[in-house]
């Protein structure tokens, strides 16, 4: 009898203990996490789809000429992307030209030269530069940098080079207002420096200290260690970091809109105002209608293609470096 009750009680107890959480909830949780992950895919596809859908009429109307035409006439409904595409590429190229040496310098300073106590605050300062909103860079560029730039760079340089072939047209400011493609390039350079510098610093930090120490041990100077030991080790990932910076520079909107001058003019001078794809969309989209809207969407499409090629290359390069 007691044995029976005991076994009954035991059975009841095990039954209550073994009542695990329901399988359904577990499945639902997994499905929810998979769904969220797929949503990321869906959003990217949606961005591409919506821009192609919006820009399609413009591509159909103007064909390949959309890319090679420099017209942007709202009255006659003639639109071409050339000025904006060149402005985008030129300002991003200038940004790399100025920004990459500075970023590498900062990364080398932080990993090789900086005294231990200053490392933390200096790298924190550089990283904080990355979190300043782009509109603040735009205001700084327009209100602080542009007047100084016009007065101390544009005017004297224009005066010196005026009339000379090539440099004369490349560095001549018709109206030294301080805004233009070069100013946009400089502001973009300042914006990409924190990214490129911090990624490069991480890559340099990953290189085994033994390599550096042995190079110093055979009497190398800092320059030789950097040139022959560190750079070859990290070169692929540094190029990846630079491409990431390029992707940012190509798509940056607000800071560029402030300082580029927003002119639809093809000019040989980098001191002259121009426009980029992003700045043109930001300026005109809200008032656009009909074909202009489609043309702006088509511009967005071009921007999508350009930046995504750059970003894919960047990710592939940084990824391969991680595996190696």
């Amino acid at each position: 009898m007691t044995a029976l009750t005991q076994s009954l009680a035991l059975a009841r107890e095990t039954a209550s203990v073994r009542k695990g959480p329901s399988k359904g909830l577990d499945r639902a949780f997994q499905a929810a996490s998979l769904g969220s992950a797929l949503l990321v895919l869906l959003v990217l596809a949606g961005i591409l789809g919506s821009i192609i859908y919006g820009g399609w009429p413009a591509f159909r109307e103007f064909g390949f000429g959309f890319i090679t035409s420099s017209a942007w006439n709202i009255g006659t409904e003639q639109y071409g992307a050339l000025v904006a595409v060149i402005g985008t590429l030129a300002s991003a190229f200038l940004a790399l030209l100025i920004g990459v040496p500075i970023s590498l310098g900062i990364a080398i300073y932080l990993t090789q030269l900086c005294p231990g106590w200053a490392r933390k605050p200096v790298s924190m300062t550089i990283e904080l530069l990355a979190s300043v909103p782009s509109i603040i860079y735009g205001m700084w560029g327009l209100f602080i940098f542009a007047p100084l730039f016009a007065r101390f760079v544009q005017t004297p340089v224009s005066n010196v080079f005026e009339g000379l072939p090539i440099v004369g047209s490349l560095l001549y400011a018709r109206v030294p207002s301080g805004v233009g493609i070069l100013t946009a390039g400089i502001i973009l350079a300042i914006m990409i420096v924190p990214f490129v510098a911090s990624i490069t610093r991480d890559m340099l930090d990953q290189i085994p200290t033994v390599l550096r120490e042995s190079a110093y041990g055979i009497g190398c100077t800092t320059w030789e260690v950097v040139r022959h030991v560190l750079v070859p080790q990290a070169s692929v990932s540094i190029i990846g970091a630079v491409m990431l910076g390029l992707g940012r520079a190509l798509g940056e909107t607000m800071a560029v809109t402030f300082v580029i001058g927003n002119a639809n003019r093809l000019s040989a001078s980098i001191f002259d105002p121009g426009s980029t794809i992003a700045s043109r969309i930001a300026n005109e989209f809200n008032e656009a209608d009909g074909m202009q809207l489609n043309a702006l969407m088509a511009l967005g499409c071009l921007l999508f293609v350009i930046t995504f090629i750059v970003l894919i290359i960047a990710r592939l390069l940084t990824r391969r470096a991680k595996l190696a």
């Binding site: 949606g46 990431l244 967005g300």
Partner: peptide, 10 residues
């Protein structure tokens, strides 16, 4: 790192 203006268009 996609351009944020494209997200606005989307």
């Amino acid at each position: 790192s996609a351009p944020s203006i494209l997200i606005g268009l989307f």
